[in-house]
């Protein structure tokens, strides 16, 4: 029951968060260029933050250097080379699997 209430409250709050920008900034065409530019940077900044937190840290501590870092580097390299989501995922997952099998 506790879990049900927590998930439900989190769902309501999260939906309000999802609505916030769309409705407060409804007519985006009239926003000043500076604000529009800042908004265009949201996706790269937020995603980099999640990547850094998940990749370099593990429960708030530095992750030991190994398969995670090397496979991520392979993925970044392929992403810049091919500019393709699909190839990046295939290369990153493939490299990670190979490194785990190799015992890293």
């Amino acid at each position: 029951m506790t879990a049900f209430i927590v998930f439900t409250l989190a769902a309501i709050g999260t939906y309000l968060i999802r609505l916030s920008g769309i409705f407060f900034l409804g007519d985006g065409e009239k926003l000043p260029p500076r604000v529009r530019k800042a908004l265009s940077l949201v996706a790269p900044a937020a995603m980099a933050a999640i990547i850094a937190n998940a990749l370099f840290l593990d429960g708030g501590q530095w992750r030991d250097f190994g398969a995670w870092h090397i496979a991520a580097l392979v993925a970044v390299g392929v992403a810049l080379w091919k500019r393709s989501m699909g190839w990046t995922l295939v290369a990153g997952a493939g490299a990670f699997a190979a490194l785990l099998i190799a015992g890293l």
């Binding site: 999802r18 769309i22 985006g28 908004l39 937020a46």
Partner: peptide, 16 residues
Amino acid sequence: NARLALYSASLAPVFA
């Protein structure tokens, strides 16, 4: 999930 507020803001012009 607060980051979704940022996405929501960046989608405002897209959804306008």
